[in-house]
Design a protein around this nucleic acid. Sequence first.
DNA 1: TTAACACATGTTCATCTGTTCATATGAATT
DNA 2: AATTCATATGAACAGATGAACATGTGTTAA
Lengths: 117, 117
Amino acid sequence: MENHKEESPVLTGREKLQSIASVQPPDEVLYELAELFKVFGDSTRVRILYSLFENELCVGDIAELLNMSQSSVSHQLRILKDAKLVKFRRDGKSFFYSLDDDHVYHIIKMGMEHVEE
Amino acid sequence: MENHKEESPVLTGREKLQSIASVQPPDEVLYELAELFKVFGDSTRVRILYSLFENELCVGDIAELLNMSQSSVSHQLRILKDAKLVKFRRDGKSFFYSLDDDHVYHIIKMGMEHVEE
DNA sequence: TTAACACATGTTCATCTGTTCATATGAATT
DNA sequence: AATTCATATGAACAGATGAACATGTGTTAA
């Protein structure tokens, strides 16, 4: 009735699992990685990022372009900013946002390749 | 002064927005793209994907490796499967899962590069 | 056939998330 | 200074989400 499997004649699963576990990145890193992707995981934010693909836009422009409220755009930009996906500069009353670095561009591009098939 | 709003000699904001809008991918595509990233946006799923990076593992192995319940692993694998990020083959009572294609590998790698800085 | 095993699936529940509404900040204009 | 414009911020609510538990399905072994 007991299912003890103490005896292992050859290399069993446990050893294999341990070797796999040893090459896994730390959970903390994987957590951060997931947090990053989570930011991409919203259609509103993806649309915002795409609108900034080759342009620098202010909040109001994005809101008009994507037909959403200023408040919502601002909230989402804050998330994108915290994730270091966008940066901004001030010009008078306006804040112009743009993509922060090339990673954003490449990550989205990779995703598109997977989607378009 | 140059304060004309009705007839501006240069490109107005509205025209600029329209030209940007014309090169935006369809919302449907961007929605799918966000759905894809949403799948990556969970540390459990990322850990699962990473465990499959260079190995083929069955559900029980993953559960043991990541110290989570079989049910939870199964649920997440289903999500990964629906997103075409993993595939599986049956061997007796066990289902061996592996990454579906290279995109998965590259997307995660891109993400890691962004995180590690 | 029956039991044991490896997974899948359904449901509930607590938590997280995005949007809206209202309001605040802060620069430019009058 | 007061007003307007551009944006940020906070609270609150609806919908989404992931984990846990129980149960169902299909395979293998006895």
